[in-house]
Design a protein around this nucleic acid. Structure first.
Length: 473
DNA sequence: ATGTAC
């Protein structure tokens, strides 16, 4: 494939054939090798062919192949001529990350980290298909999907301050749960307040490096050794069902003829089906916000029980990694509203954007990038440059280099756990198979991913954290 | 990611 090197961290696939715009890949020579081995670049070119796409089809440094669109793909579409696509959001709608700070240091919790993990695994149900401890009626589930994290706070899970420190304040107003299929509702009812499986986790972390003292202090990250709690999960079976439902509905309505790949099925944003998908997707987004809100509340309960207090455990921020949204961006010098798809990408807004909470508005929003199991994670800050470079987006994680299937062939869960424990990291999981699939060897080097983000200007380094204890689904 | 197939 023809790739034009723009600079050390940017490559372009020039417009050709049916492409309406070029594709732009933020990567390094090292990361480019793995991206060239799978379908990522072909998929980025396919996205560039879709109707109404603006500026470029963007690829983030952690990208790998996904359903239709690459994971680590960002694309914006014209509100009048453009499309919205379930494959551009992904199956796990509003998969995302929440970060809590604490007043504890690693020393304070060292002796009790196994106990913290044991209590968390009692308090937070995890695993494939796992149900939760809440008993919801159908009507309450619909209310959760309409109100998101607000519902959770109103029902005793956490504080209003948490909402301020959540993307969209924990609630997408566009949500209309009445468009959810009966099956989506049915799957959502038992799973609210559950972690799930795959790459979802709870992690006890300690700050290992601070790159920007001023910004980190604004985020509530004060010193090396400070303990943080990271929560990574999404919308479970409900979001998955919304994606499946609308992929099928759109295929039936529009057919797959003329698409470069049937997985790119989409609907005009202004069509009935496009609007219904957006409202249903927003309902799933809200379900995921409520999910993380409840889990965060239980994590605080666990600290209160094991450590004696959860005081000081305020939220740093909560970000979406898989979402489509209507946002205003400057295109060809003119401010316009577009439909942004961020699939495996984090919003990275810089100073001044009205969408970010006032407390962060002078420095930019927190960007939370989890690594793979047993590796570092990073806190970055959004930049103004990113708005021109990538519609205000950066990476969302390490990004796979190996399929789950291949990881199962190569790794053993028991051995991975042993290796982590020899490095002083506790691991608790419901599934050896899950641990093998999530081995860090199946992922890219997150240090390299965030270096590209920093150097390219997509999001700037603020702090590095390392795991102390990990709970996997 | 996912009641890893409806």
């Amino acid at each position: 494939m023809e790739l034009k090197r723009i600079n050390d961290y940017t490559w372009e696939i020039p417009k050709e054939g049916d492409m309406k715009v070029p594709a732009l890949i933020y990567t390094s020579a090292k990361l480019l090798e793995s991206v060239r081995r799978d379908m990522t670049l072909k998929q980025a070119k396919n996205v560039a062919c879709l109707r109404g796409i603006q500026r470029k089809s963007y690829v983030m440094p952690d990208a790998h192949q996904g359903y239709g669109f690459p994971i680590g793909g960002v694309a914006a579409f014209d509100m009048d001529d453009g499309i919205i696509s379930p494959g551009g959001v992904g199956y796990d709608i509003n998969c995302g990350v929440r970060l809590l700070r604490t007043d504890y240091t690693e020393r304070d919790i060292h002796e009790r980290r196994a106990q913290l993990l044991a209590e968390m695994s009692k308090a937070v149900p995890a695993g494939v298909g796992k149900g939760g401890i809440t008993r919801l009626s159908r009507n309450v589930l619909l209310e959760v999907c309409a109100k998101g994290a607000e519902w959770a706070v109103e029902n005793g899970y956490g504080t209003r301050e948490d909402l301020e420190r959540t993307e969209e304040s924990g609630r997408m107003e566009a949500a209309d749960p009445s468009y959810l299929s009966p099956r989506a509702v049915e799957r959502g009812i038992p799973q609210l307040g559950t972690l799930g499986a795959g790459n979802h986790f709870l992690e006890i972390q300690k700050v290992s490096e601070i790159y920007d003292e001023q910004v980190s202090r604004v985020f509530g990250i004060d010193s090396v050794g400070q303990v943080l709690m990271m929560i990574h999960c999404g919308s479970r079976g409900l979001g998955h069902q919304v994606a499946s439902d609308y992929i099928r509905l759109m295929e039936n309505k529009f057919g797959i003829r003329g698409l470069p790949d049937r997985e790119l099925i989409n609907a005009p944003i202004r069509s009935q089906l496009g609007e219904r998908y957006y409202k249903s997707m927003s309902a799933a987004v809200n379900y995921a916000f409520a999910n993380r809100q409840m889990i965060a509340h239980w994590v605080r309960d666990v600290f209160a029980k094991v450590m004696g207090s959860s005081e000081g455990m305020s939220q740093v921020y909560d970000v979406c990694h898989n979402v489509a949204k209507f946002e205003k961006h400057k295109i060809d010098g003119k401010e316009r509203e577009v439909c942004i798809h961020r699939k495996g990408a984090t919003r990275s807004f810089g100073p001044g954007r009205e969408e970010i909470p006032e407390i962060f508005r002078s420095v930019g929003q927190p960007v939370i990038i989890p690594g793979s199991m047993g590796t570092a994670s990073y806190i970055l800050v959004g930049t103004s440059e990113a708005e021109q470079l990538s519609f205000g987006s950066t990476a969302h994680g390490a990004g796979r280099v190996m399929s789950r299937h291949e990881a199962l062939r190569r790794f053993r869960g028991e051995q991975i756990k042993q290796e982590m424990e020899s490095r002083g990291i506790e691991l608790k999981s419901t599934s050896w198979k899950g641990v093998a699939e999530e081995a860090s060897g199946a992922y890219k080097d997150v240090d390299e991913v965030v270096k590209v983000s920093h150097k390219a200007g997509l999001g700037k380094l603020v702090a590095k954290v390392v795991p102390v204890g990990v709970m996997k689904g």
